[in-house]
Amino acid sequence: MSLTLDDIKRVANLACIETSETEATNALIHLSDIFNLIEQMQAVDTSSVNPMSHSQDLVQRLRDDMVTESDQRELFQSIAPKTDSGLYLVPKVLE
């Protein structure tokens, strides 16, 4: 497999990170190196192996359905970039 500049741009766009032409070219060089390393994985036959998501073979613990949180809006919004009337403000979506 070889990465292309288009792959980099597509992925940067999915990840919402503005990337200039130079940055993309640079990223392509580094990521190609890294993927060469990653490709070693493909040599192993894993058809009989189950994927492992967690190291402990445990199941999800559940919370009782109870309200435990109180309103901390003022504290939380004291560190927000822009708020008004209790709302977080963001620029409008451009069509």
Partner: peptide
């Protein structure tokens, strides 16, 4: 993403540009 805390770009044109 610059919405609720952390760095928000000083200049942008629209939501997606703000994110990016």
């Amino acid at each position: 993403d610059g919405v609720r805390y952390g760095h928000r770009a000083p200049e942008y044109i629209g939501l997606n540009d703000m994110y990016q």
